[in-house]
Amino acid sequence: MLMLYNSDNFAVVQFDLPGDSAAVEPTGNDPALTRGGYEIVDKFARKEIFLEGAMAESFKVGVEALIQTSPSEDELDDYIARFTQLAQNPVVLH
């Protein structure tokens, strides 16, 4: 788990989880499979979304392109807000 971004509006955390190696025959030379994604928390709406697969890759590519332009916090928040519109899960503290 790695905190990537934390503003007044959003928090973005990257998760890298061990993949399911049962589907692949072990050859001794294969690197360990990994999977993961990004959890985005909308602090004002108190909702979160977990992006994985193609959606996570799209998020990553978009953030990398945005970083090349030295964006302001507002520009980063606007980009992240496009993904949080899909958020359905309420944030619950344990």
Rank of each mutant, 00 (worst) to 15 (best):
M1V: 07
L2D: 11
M3N: 10
M3F: 03
M3A: 09
L4W: 04
L4G: 03
L4T: 04
Y5A: 05
N9R: 15
N9F: 12
N9P: 07
A11R: 15
A11G: 11
V13C: 06
V13R: 02
Q14T: 10
D16R: 06
D16I: 14
D16F: 06
L17S: 12
P18Y: 12
P18C: 08
P18G: 09
P18D: 12
G19Q: 12
G19F: 09
G19A: 13
D20L: 11
S21M: 15
V24H: 15
V24Q: 15
E25C: 10
P26Y: 14
P26T: 14
P26G: 12
P26F: 14
T27I: 12
T27D: 14
T27K: 13
T27S: 15
G28H: 10
G28M: 12
N29Y: 15
D30Y: 10
D30M: 12
D30N: 14
P31W: 10
P31T: 09
A32V: 14
A32K: 15
A32C: 06
T34D: 07
T34G: 10
R35M: 11
R35E: 11
R35N: 11
R35G: 04
G36P: 11
G36S: 08
G36V: 08
G36I: 06
G36K: 07
G37P: 05
G37Y: 02
Y38H: 06
E39G: 04
E39P: 04
V41I: 10
V41H: 03
V41N: 05
V41F: 03
D42G: 05
K43Y: 04
F44M: 08
F44I: 03
A45I: 00
A45M: 02
R46F: 01
K47L: 05
K47N: 05
I49R: 00
I49A: 03
I49E: 02
F50M: 01
L51M: 02
L51V: 00
E52S: 04
E52K: 00
M55C: 00
M55W: 03
M55L: 04
S58P: 00
S58V: 01
F59W: 00
K60V: 05
K60L: 09
K60E: 08
G62A: 06
E64F: 01
E64N: 06
A65K: 02
L66H: 06
I67R: 10
Q68G: 07
Q68E: 14
Q68R: 13
T69G: 02
T69E: 11
T69Q: 13
S70V: 09
S70E: 13
S70I: 12
P71L: 12
D74L: 14
D74S: 14
E75Y: 09
L76G: 03
Y79Q: 07
I80D: 06
I80Y: 04
I80K: 08
A81P: 02
R82Q: 13
R82I: 05
T84C: 01
T84M: 04
T84A: 01
Q85R: 06
Q85L: 10
Q85E: 14
A87S: 02
A87V: 01
Q88R: 07
Q88G: 00
N89C: 00
V91F: 03
V92D: 02
V92T: 09
H94I: 09
H94K: 10
H94R: 09
H94D: 12
H94C: 07
H94M: 07
